[in-house]
């Protein structure tokens, strides 16, 4: 677990950005405290996903630094950052069973099989996935699959931060509520830092201790300003 600081992050998808509009993210300075539950709120296309990518190491920022506690991890591999991420659409390994899906991140890290087994069963219990744990993951409903994506993050004990990229988009209405409260409950139990990206205000407010609001990039004022604003106006402390 760690405190995550983004220092003066800028990012552009162009190879040679010059104008301000070339940047998907401009001048981001945020600190995510250890154990906090944060929500990034904003319309699509405002750079929330990019921000997650920068934290997870899937995207290298054009400039700026990413710190986990005091360590500079800007150029570190995704795998060494010890992060977990749940995507908009459930990502599961179709040909594996539910059990193997959950065990996958542990086995890749060469953890002894006895530990894997106990840890997986524990997480499966937490997520109500025990039933049919040896069935093929492909046979599950979409919310079951999303739980597996979530579970693959939870099984690892060394996770610095768990990130959610609009994870409930494809879940139907009544399951949404259930999964949301599950997440909240999980956060209380495991106390990992969680960052939750959404464009839904209710979702953001119910999940997070702090909400950071983004505005679309194209629109002025710039993000830097928006984040300043977020300190005073839209940072809802609870």
């Amino acid at each position: 677990m760690a405190k995550i600081s983004l220092q003066d992050i800028r990012h552009s998808y162009l190879s040679n950005p010059r104008l301000d509009v070339d940047f998907a993210l401009k001048h981001i300075d945020i600190v995510f405290e250890d154990g906090g539950a944060y929500a990034l709120l904003g319309p699509s296309g405002c750079g929330k996903t990019t921000l997650l990518g920068i934290v997870s190491g899937l995207v290298s920022p054009t400039s700026g630094r990413v710190l986990f506690d005091e360590d500079d991890v800007t150029d570190m591999d995704t795998i060494h950052r010890h992060i977990a991420q749940v995507f908009q659409f459930p990502v599961i390994y179709d040909t594996m069973t539910v059990f193997d899906n959950l065990a996958f991140p542990l086995r890749n890290r060469k953890i002894p099989e006895t530990d894997v087994s106990s840890r997986v069963l524990e997480v499966a219990k937490m997520l109500d996935l025990e039933e049919g744990i040896h069935r093929r993951a492909a046979s599950l409903t979409v919310d079951g699959k999303q739980k597996i994506s979530l579970g693959r993050g939870l099984v690892r004990e060394d996770v610095n931060v768990m990130m959610f990229d609009e994870p409930l988009t494809v879940i139907d209405q009544n399951m949404k509520w259930e999964l949301r409260s599950k997440l909240k409950e999980l956060h209380q139990n495991v106390r990992t830092t969680m960052i939750y990206v959404t464009h839904d205000q209710t979702e953001a407010l119910t999940f997070a201790d702090e909400v950071l609001a983004f505005k679309p990039v194209r629109q002025l004022p710039r993000l830097a300003f928006v984040l300043n604003m977020s300190d005073s106006v839209s940072r809802v402390s609870r």
Partner: peptide, 27 residues
């Protein structure tokens, strides 16, 4: 294959061979 699969595999620490066996080949 959506990009998210490769990203998830990276996060899960999958080797190149594991990506081939569990993502690319099934797809």
């Amino acid at each position: 294959i959506p990009e998210a699969y490769y990203q998830a595999a990276k996060i899960d620490g999958a080797s190149k061979w594991a990506v081939f066996k569990w993502i690319q080949l099934p797809k």
